[in-house]
Write a protein that binds this DNA or RNA. Structure first.
Lengths: 234, 234
DNA sequence: CCGCATCCGAATAGATACTG
DNA sequence: CAGTATCTATTCGGATGCGG
């Protein structure tokens, strides 16, 4: 066991659920891989593109490890043989609320957008799911559509229960069009929708009241508009 | 203060909530430090004892970093000057559901108890909080007491709302006495209460029906046992 | 002692070249 | 395309030092 690369994985050696979870998920890049897979199956090369800096060996090793632990599984996308991809197995899928919780927490800690930062429009989908405050869902049934660069997704509120989905909304009460960086900045509270619109980075169409309800649902400050003045919960 | 010569901190450089969260929490030991602080303030030396293997420099560095990020704060325990400790600031406290979620997830992945594993009785407190399935709370108001080695804590159900607390329960419907390793093994489903009792590692006193309700609440199988056939590769 | 800071061998991560 | 193999750069872990 002295030989380097002999495979004895590092462990916290604590008989505790959290330590066991971190023995599987705690290494660098692992939870970001899970994040990508939360938005559907991905191929090896897709992951490389959306995780800049990971390095091919690390990605391969992490994937192999996660498959071995039953968190991720390989699937055959189309036809036999080639075109295979990775997707979450059930234990991986059950990480969704945890990863979204972390993403929500981290929203309060995103810094200024630096030129070194990468942004991906499909992260907007995750951001919406993470920002959700279901208890703030309006009593009115309606849906909102988001177009973040080339990604389109929507939120539908029905009977005070909000849900996110891919693709365009059916008869949306609001349509917001923006780029990925602006989207995240608004979600993080570092930019108000107002400023984003004035500076031409955000376009909103639809009913003004619906816009307010949508912002409420996502915990976005509307910028001292009408309505009850609510203390920022931060 | 920045240290000019020796590198800036490593970051994923992704403009995304999850990546930002992991830039703060994703390094080795960090979430285990948070776990300890979730159960109250701790001194530097306490943390060293309950995180075997961390190394003194790492602990100091992590704590400094977390204080710098506003997740943790230093407090003055008794009197002035010495006897200072670390406790979670509000952003750290808001990690509780996330850490508990991870702990719950990890419960399905704890392996066999190895001689190399450390166990701490106060982790039982965390385990109970993590295993909670509030929607399974019984309609009957009652409380259960747990004595895990030298730690005593309890669960109180009132109006279908369960809560965990330190110290003995007031007029408990059930009292369970065990050691930390057995406690975790039962919570992880690797050992049934029945087997634990027969082998003398667990003592339960109280109403049999209350015991069943308590197990329900914590998601513990009461029925005929079958040895878990899961074999985690280590 | 307690609360770190420093130093160093060992284990991981990152970058790049290469292969079926 | 989907990874290995290899090499270098960082980080970790453990021992030790040191001021209060």
């Amino acid at each position: 066991m002295e030989r380097p690369g002999s495979g004895a994985k590092r462990s916290y050696n604590q008989y505790c659920g959290l330590a066991s979870a971190l023995d599987i998920l705690g290494e660098r890049w692992t939870l970001l891989i899970i994040r990508e897979l939360l938005m559907g199956p991905r191929r090896y090369s897709d992951l490389l593109v959306d995780l800049p800096g990971i390095g091919t060996n690390l990605l391969a090793e992490r994937l192999k490890f996660l498959v071995d632990k039953g968190v991720v599984q390989q699937i055959d996308l189309k036809g036999t043989g080639s075109r295979l991809a990775y997707e979450l197995a059930e234990p991986g899928e059950s990480l969704r609320p945890i990863v979204l919780g972390l993403a929500h927490w981290g929203m309060d800690h995103v810094g200024d957008l630096s030129p070194a930062d990468t942004v991906r429009p499909h992260w907007g989908f995750l951001a919406v799911e993470a920002m959700f405050q279901p208890e703030k869902a309006s009593a009115i049934d309606e849906s909102y559509e988001f177009r973040v660069d080339d990604q389109v997704f929507h939120v539908t509120v029905a009977g005070r229960v909000p849900r996110v989905g891919k693709g365009p909304a059916d008869n949306p009460a609001m349509v917001a069009v923006t780029d990925a960086a602006t989207f995240v900045q608004i979600g993080a509270g570092r930019l108000t929708p107002l400023i984003a619109m004035v500076s031409g980075r955000l376009t909103i169409e639809g009913d003004a009241e619906a816009v307010v309800r949508c912002c409420e649902l996502l915990g976005i400050a509307t910028g001292a508009m009408t309505a009850p003045s609510r203390a920022p919960s931060r």
